[in-house]
Amino acid sequence: MTLLRRGGAPPRDTEGATPPDPSNDDRKRREQRQILLTRLDLRTSPYLFIAPFFLLFAVFGLFPLLYTVWVSLHDWTLLGGNQGFVGIDNYVRLAQDAKFWNALYNTFGMFVLGVVPQLLLAMFLADTLSRRIRAVNFFRMGLLLPYLTSVAAVAIVFSQLFGTEFGLVNYALGFFGIDPVNWKGGTFSSWAVIAVMVDWRWTGYNALIYLAAMTAISKDLYEAASIDGASRMRQFWQITVPMLRPTIIFTVIVSTIGQMQLFTEPVIFDGGSVAGGTQGQFQTVMMLIFEEGFRFNNYGYGSAIAWTLFVLIVLIGALNALLSSRIKGAQ
């Protein structure tokens, strides 16, 4: 600190009037020191400025991450603490654990059911909003509104809409002569409800990202295309989509990471339980981590699942990155 402050605001006498009767040697030494300090300042200051983030990350991000690895190699209970080293036993158990595979299957199922329609719809919305329509800013802002509501509020409202006995959706279906659906009971139906909750929140967000990218595409391309007689549909698939590829890959990565950690919506849908329905039909990996760690007091095993999930997300991220570099290469 002291060094830097001196470096930043050096004593006035180095550039101002020479003080009376200075020793020549002394002044040289002082100037040299000054140069050294300035250089030090230039080199180190940037690092110091970004240090707070990395310090916080190290304490609250990196340390827990590594500590989780440590915990996952032990028989560790929530209350009793460390019960001894067990090596990779927790991971061996995980590989044979039907509940884990079920949770992974559910997570991927909800991912496909949620993200694919979400991104397609976002693209469609963005394309619509990039045209000249009335009150375009109103609609653009409107897209973001669901994103502003809290996850919990969305999940509570949707859980009630999809209630079996008193839900509005079943009530509406009744007009078409459809028997009440036990949304929570079935595997696919429960996934669908959760996908709807997720999409409600995130479609608008993704649409705005696409919209921003679309406005950056040169209008000349479209003009040239329409002179050549390309239909709007053709323009969309052959100009808009290819130009949006990097953006699409970004949204896919972000959505994947979010979906893999899906937790709040299904928990609230199940009335606050992490069991994910009567038979775990919508229990996600995150819910299983929570159930093992905090309900069954099995901290070590919960950590092993958490770490496995982390590795899976990194792998999927890497796969996405690989794909995106391929696409760039093709261009």
Partner: peptide, 18 residues
């Protein structure tokens, strides 16, 4: 009536004579 105990639906069931 298959209403999970303590759920919103269950409470609504008390209100609505289900």
């Amino acid at each position: 009536a298959n209403l999970p105990m303590w759920s919103d639906e269950w409470n609504a069931g008390i209100q609505n004579n289900v």
